[in-house]
């Protein structure tokens, strides 16, 4: 399940930032290594909000810099959600 989710998130991020999935190193800094600007960073959050109904707070933008950070954040938020 978690691997499927990770793959889904990678696909979503790839679409938003318009970089092929195989070119995204999960540990690369999206902002300094892949040229994502802050607005596009918000667009990633907005797409996560749309797809998973996650109300990602804006201050997370400072903490989340890699694809792995995003995946961990989404997993954390989903596991914290009331069932």
């Amino acid at each position: 399940m978690n691997d499927v989710l990770s793959k889904e998130i990678k696909t979503l991020v790839s679409k938003v930032i318009k970089i092929p999935e195989d070119k995204i190193d999960p540990n690369a800094n999206l902002f300094t290594d892949l040229g994502v600007d802050s607005l596009l960073g918000v667009e990633i959050f907005a797409s996560l909000d749309k797809k998973y109904g996650l109300d990602v707070p804006e201050n997370k933008l400072k903490d989340v810099t890699t694809l792995n950070d995003i995946i961990n954040m989404v997993k954390g938020m989903m596991s914290d959600r009331p069932r």
Partner: peptide
């Protein structure tokens, strides 16, 4: 489109 993200932006603003 799938990426229409206005709702999130409207929430932020």
């Amino acid at each position: 489109i799938e990426q229409d993200t206005s709702a999130y932006w409207r929430k932020l603003l």
